[in-house]
Nucleic acid binder design. Sequence first.
DNA 1: GACAAGATTAGCT
DNA 2: GCTAATCTTGTCT
Length: 202
Amino acid sequence: MRYLPIQDDFFKRNTLKVAKDLLGKIIVRKTDKNTYISAKIVEVEAYMGDHDPACHAYQKVTSRSGTLYEDGGTIYVYFIYGNYYCFNIVTEKKGIGSAVLIRAVEPIEGIEIMKEFRQKSKTLFDLTNGPSKFCLAFDIDKRFNGKKLSEKEIFISYPIKKEKFEISTSKRIGIKKGEHFLYRFFIKDNLYVTKHKYNFIY
DNA sequence: GACAAGATTAGCT
DNA sequence: GCTAATCTTGTCT
């Protein structure tokens, strides 16, 4: 498969724009065996730096949130609930602390490899429909925290064939602070987004 | 050092 | 729809 990697400048922009623009793009993972896993991004959430109560960078730099203050195009991976990882792409310029969380993707390439990593999945639809399910399927863990997309171990590509779709908006999922902000974006009617009551808020 | 919270998931009712 | 599992991180002492 052919890829058209996105340059760093794409990520050094307004976080909400980057979040919406990431929908429909392809996320690619190079495996140890030099094969590729890829998927279309169908659901994201924006975390707005030190003004957003839900963001890990809220009002402080800690050992964990340090990565969030790096330049746009940096990878931020953190561990949660004793079991799971979440994958974010840092946005804006250095020192802002914003990022976009990848919540769900639609598998394209390397589906058998993803199934190996995601033992618990039963169908193609629950393979990558959740932030930590995606990390499992793509074999993403803390090793990637602080790395750059430009290193090309994991990177974002423009789709070869551009499709049209509508973007839906809702509250973010699973947070208590800053919950009223409509910072979750997903491709309307896509079958690979997380199933949730918030899908009916527009 | 101790302690509580957490950007989730799977499994059960 | 509800909840246990599980441990890192941040905060306070």
